[in-house]
Design a protein around this nucleic acid. Structure first.
Length: 371
DNA sequence: CACGCGTGGGG
DNA sequence: TCCCCAAGCGT
């Protein structure tokens, strides 16, 4: 890794910011520097692409215009606003932080990265982004773009998948950040990382900072950043129970902790929870087990039928779900005192927050029932 | 520190 | 189809 002279640092800042002033993207959260706007956009943008975020951001701002609105919003409304975005703990933490701001800071935002990091859901990256963009504090905002851009500029070969590597990049960026325009500097790095200096098909030949890009100049651009691989998702088999009653379909709310916390799905049963040796059993035997277990746990008598076709698949970061659909029709709406869920008519589906995997299950069920 | 936590897009 | 990537954080 190399060292830059003060003159080179100054030239880099000028080149980068001149380009940013001319080419910066026109994004909904760039209309002003209100910390609430910056914050909501930064949380949504965690591990999520700009094009996905834009419509969610606009709906969210229309629904919860201020941090005070967010602090007092019913949790169901929050989850509905977030449904489909993923990483649902983000929105619960955001409401916690909104309440911290109202209660601990009397509605006035803390203005330094160190203070911002005390708020729920705000880590080192988001604290740096808000502090620099909204409050002009000269601190780095080290996200995936910054890792990639600076790894190439300086040929840094530390593994960016390792937590300790963050400090190394933080120190490098601290030396080159434009202290008079830290927010614009950090955002310019992000724009650079998503245009000329992308992970896969970079176009460094036309990049405004081409001459500063040591990895490109050495013809080794794609060797950076160094990042260790993650294990592939493990397959997990489920049954989805589509249970029709005279007044609608049976839904249950997932537990607060764990995957898809507090979102609503039709009852999902993991094969491995049905029997120790579930993997060795035949499908009809598994269906019998589901029927017995569901009836025992809920006092709802079922005669489940297997719906045909290949399983519905849905891949998460660490798991690939293979979901086989089962169907039952009840003559009367059951007593639900033993069942942690409710019956929802299709017309009311929009009143509950559903994850994408549930939408896939429903789509498949509709396809099957048309025939 | 390693891992859990969603989803969509592109090669 | 599979793999990687995308403005990370909490535990």
């Amino acid at each position: 890794m190399q060292q830059w002279s003060p003159e080179k640092i100054k030239a880099f800042q000028t080149t980068l910011l001149t380009w940013y002033d001319r080419e910066k993207r026109d994004l909904p959260w760039r209309k002003d520097h209100a910390p609430y706007h910056i914050w909501v956009s930064e949380i949504m943008l965690q591990q999520t692409q700009v094009q996905t975020v834009i419509p969610y951001y606009q709906r969210f701002m229309a629904t919860f215009p201020t941090v005070a609105d967010l602090a007092t919003a019913p949790e169901g409304e929050l989850l509905k606003a977030w449904a489909g975005l993923g990483y649902y703990s983000r929105v619960r933490n955001m409401q916690k932080a909104a309440q911290q701001i109202m209660d601990d800071y009397q509605g006035d935002w803390p203005q330094t990265a160190a203070e911002l990091e005390k708020l729920a859901g705000i880590g080192p990256y988001t604290a740096g982004a808000i502090a620099s963009i909204a409050f002009n504090e000269p601190v780095p905002a080290v996200d995936g773009n910054a890792f990639r851009v600076f790894a190439r500029l300086f040929e840094i070969d530390a593994d960016i998948a390792k937590p300790q590597t963050r400090q190394l990049f933080y120190n490098v960026i601290k030396e080159v950040i434009a202290t008079d325009r830290p927010g614009d500097f950090n955002q310019a790095i992000m724009d650079l990382g998503s245009s000329y200096m992308t992970a896969k098909n970079p176009d460094s030949a036309h990049s405004p900072v081409r001459d500063f890009n040591q990895a490109y100049l050495d013809g080794k651009e794609l060797d950076y950043p160094v990042k260790s691989k993650k294990p592939r998702p493990v397959p997990v088999n489920y049954f989805a129970l589509v249970i029709k009653t005279p007044t609608g379909y049976l839904f249950e709310q997932r537990p607060r902790t764990g995957m898809l916390g507090e979102l609503w799905t039709v009852p999902l049963l993991k094969w491995s929870d049905l029997a120790e040796n579930a993997a060795d059993l035949l499908l009809p035997d598994l269906v019998t087990l589901v029927t017995q277990q569901f009836t025992e746990n809920t006092q709802i008598k079922l005669a489940l039928g297997l719906l045909g076709g290949r399983p519905v698949t849905h891949t998460f970061t660490h798991q690939k779900w293979l979901i086989t659909l089962l169907y039952a029709e009840l003559a009367v709406t059951p007593e639900l005192s033993y069942f942690p869920g409710k019956v929802v008519a299709p017309a009311d589906f929009a009143t509950i927050a559903q994850p994408k995997v549930q939408l896939k299950i429903w789509q498949r069920f509709e396809q099957i029932s048309e025939h």
